[in-house]
Design a protein around this nucleic acid. Structure first.
Length: 484
RNA sequence: UGCCCGAUGGUGUAGUGGUAGCACAAACGACUCUGACUCGUUUAGCCAUGGUUCGAGUCCAUGUCGGGCAACCA
């Protein structure tokens, strides 16, 4: 009809990058990064960030770094690094040679900290945490300057060295950036950039007794790696001025941060701390418990990487919080599985069916199509005999006209087999249906059924002792059914 | 009581001063050896009030509502 619309929807990040590339910023290079903290498994929300980071890099001929943001040894473990790498690979992304660790930059970061001290832009503060809180002020009140704020450069250098050498205990001694205690942005009120932590790091052991704080480590790690577009979620928006300030002070590579709204899904708990709590309290069976929103769990449920990537593309990207309908995710996986997964039959709640006019000893093999949307997927044997089981849900004694499955007197098709008609319903003493006596029509054998008008009612499945309700399956997963 | 960000059908979004589109969901119908898929139809939207303009979802002002910010977490 009209202009061909681009398959990739526009969003503000894409436009920013496209503009930068067009203007030749950074020589037209695009370097993004995904910086997980190895303190938990990746979840569906991370998938959005991963698809964005790797997606943008790929789209603009750049690269996306995977950087373990391991700056807090009390929370991080090696186990998580492996799961993170596995999940990203599974999603279909490749960081190539670009696997980094914030901890690999500790030496450089430490040097930057000294540089800051020498420039009079950082100082060692000895306020207790309670005092600190008091001095910091609040969103509505300005903060007060720490009495340690104007120590000499020499004193600061000496104290920071003592902190680094492990001569001071964890506690009051903290290296702070000297910015502005009355800034309306609380993050600029002389934020901590280094604290003493006498905890072994999972990669570096006891090498360090001081560790950089997020803002300091993250901004400079980005700069060290030459990240052109540092994409993160909205909650870091208020950190941006600090991010820029730090990079500016040490004249590092001018990485820029851009924020977008994180994913929120209906009926779904997303959030590493929440998931971690569920796992650690034993409320779920593990990080891949199918009920939770980790990528490991979705994988176990049979979700495909394609469906998740497609979902991430579908939901778009904005700067305002929203709650995405879980139906969007389900639509994505349903469409993907429908196109490429072989069907299987299974019965959850069996009800016996006896075909009265089918020979006692006879058993025949019928042909079932593995995937109607892709005949190349072949066929499978579907046994048929006098006794079968159907899903109890597929029978209704007193059925409304809209019920297309088994009900007394109505002829229906057993998928890939014959038309059958329920002649009699057998119940036990409690009045529960325990067996159906049916007849079949030999002329209606699956595949070449003559009829048309007759088979208004039809349904699925079956074999051997079992007549099954059909489900898609991939591994142990299943296709989420549309809620009715 | 401060500062920052945001606001388009039920949901997610596009629209960059010139006819408000798309997807999901829902309803109805067609098709079907999966009540699936597919196809068709329908329902339904610019937070409010002013202003600028020939013309405003878009620009401006004010208001309303929502979110974020006071870890030695990331």
């Amino acid at each position: 009809m009209s202009i061909e619309e681009s398959t990739t929807p526009k969003h503000f990040i894409r436009e920013i990058i496209a503009k930068d590339v067009a203007e030749g910023k950074h020589g037209g290079k695009v370097v993004t990064r995904f910086p997980p903290e190895p303190s938990g498994y990746l979840h569906i929300g991370h998938a959005k960030a991963i698809c964005l980071g790797f997606g943008m890099a790929k789209e603009f001929g750049g690269v996306c770094h995977l950087r373990m943001d391991d700056t807090n040894p009390v929370k991080e473990e090696a186990e998580y690094e492996e799961s993170i790498k596995e999940d990203i690979r599974w999603l279909g992304f490749d960081w190539g040679e670009n696997l980094y660790y914030a901890s690999d930059y500790f030496e450089q970061l430490h040097g930057f900290a000294i540089q800051l001290i020498e420039a009079g832009k950082a100082y060692v503060c000895q306020l207790s945490q309670e005092e600190w809180r008091d001095y910091k002020g609040s969103p509505t009140e300005p903060g007060k300057e720490s009495p340690y704020r104007n120590r000499s450069v020499e004193a600061n250098l000496d104290l920071f060295k003592k902190m680094t050498d492990g001569e001071l205990d964890e506690g009051p001694h903290v290296l702070r950036a000297k910015i502005d205690m009355v800034s309306p942005n609380l993050h600029l009120r002389d934020p901590a950039i280094y604290r003493i932590l006498k905890v072994p790091h999972h990669r570096l052991g006891n090498k360090w007794s001081v560790y950089p704080m997020y803002d300091f480590a993250h901004s400079l790690s980005d700069a060290i790696e030459g990240i052109t577009h540092s994409l993160c979620s909205l909650e870091f928006e208020v950190h941006r001025p600090l991010y820029d300030w730090i990079i500016e002070q040490v004249q590092a590579f001018p990485s820029k941060q851009y924020e977008f709204a994180r994913l929120e899904l209906g009926y779904t708990v997303i959030g590493k701390r929440n998931l971690k709590e569920l796992v650690e309290k034993g409320l779920v069976s593990g990080w891949d418990d199918p009920r939770i929103s980790t990528l490991a769990a979705f994988r176990r449920r049979g979700y495909t990487p394609e469906s998740i990537r497609n979902f991430c593309e579908t939901i778009g990207l904005t700067r305002f919080k929203s709650l995405t309908d879980i139906a969007l995710l389900e639509h994505s996986i349903r469409g993907d599985l429908n196109a490429k997964v072989s069907r299987v039959l299974g019965v959850l709640d069996p009800l016996k069916v006896v075909i009265e006019n089918y020979p006692e000893e006879k058993e025949e093999i019928l042909e079932g199509i593995n995937n109607p949307t892709n005949l190349d997927a072949g066929t499978r044997d579907v046994p048929f005999s006098r006794e079968l089981y159907v899903e109890r849900e597929d029978f209704m004694e007193d059925a409304p006209k809209k019920f297309f499955r088994l009900t007394p007197g109505r002829e229906v098709r057993l998928r890939y087999a014959y038309f059958i008609t329920c002649q009699e319903v057998i119940k036990n003493e409690q009045g529960e249906v325990v067996e159906l006596r049916c007849t079949y029509d030999p002329e209606t054998r699956g595949g070449n059924a003559p009829d048309d008008e007759r088979s208004k009612g039809r349904f699925i499945g079956f074999p051997r002792g079992m007549l099954f309700r059909q489900r898609f399956a991939s591994m142990i997963g299943y296709l989420p059914r549309k809620s009715r």
